[in-house]
Amino acid sequence: MTTPNTISHDLLGAIGGVPRPEGDVVVDARDVNKFFGRLHVLKDVCLQVKRQETVVIIGPSGSGKTTFIRCVNHLEKIQSGRIFVNGHLIGYREAGGGKKLVEDKEKNIARQRQEIGMVFQRFNLFPHMTALENIIEAPIQVRGVDRDEAIAMGRALLDRVGLAAKEKVYPNQLSGGQQQRIAIARALAMKPALMLFDEPTSALDPEMIGEVLEVMKELAREGMTMIVVSHEMGFAREVANRVVMMDEGVVVEEGTPNQVFSAPTQERTKAFLSKIL
């Protein structure tokens, strides 16, 4: 079994260095509102993520943190507000002099998503493809990368997440931790400017959490811009540049890990942390 120690450094080296988006702000969410029917799940959420920053969103379940990062790559629609990634409005175009939001063409949304990697709680690897095929699928189909080139990059990525030997293995023969590391490699293969992690360790057995967090820490250290929804407070403390506390669809508090964990100013943050720490 692979231990975290075998994970070599330089994850981004495998995809040719840190992606350099223009400008300093990668994600800029302004007054985002989202309803599920009558349920108001995001209430005027504002969040900025700067280049090479790692932001960890914490909060009780049902607080809207997962919904929020799903809005960032338009897996969920929003009812009002704007989300910009690298200066591009995500999922919508403005109509009527910027007053109305009209959903963008599927083609444009797909193009925007190429720049945004996403890692899911349940991995969502393609079960009918081997580990390597999972990784090279999108670069070949979407980016039009040459197959041999994609394979070379895929192998490099597998090597960096410590799974070089699992190239030809199907997902159902891999452990949860291994699957999640391949899911990270799959997202990285698209050379995204931003990575979204939706509770990436919540579906894992405890002994496998470490190996996944190790890959994520490495990625953060190398300068990937990341938004992570997580209950791993240790990870947040060690890696996050900023911690955002959400509750009932509202950003309650945000600050450095030290500020939020050691001296929270809001009652709701204190209540939440007292339960979880």
Binding site: L75, A110, R111, R113, Q114, I116, G117, R122, A187, M190
Partner: peptide
């Protein structure tokens, strides 16, 4: 989740259907 993963990689509707 398969469709979501495929979409999040930037794959179009057609690619998602035919490949995934």
């Amino acid at each position: 989740g398969q469709t979501e993963a495929s979409k999040s990689l930037g794959m179009r509707y057609r690619q998602t259907m035919s490949r995934i």
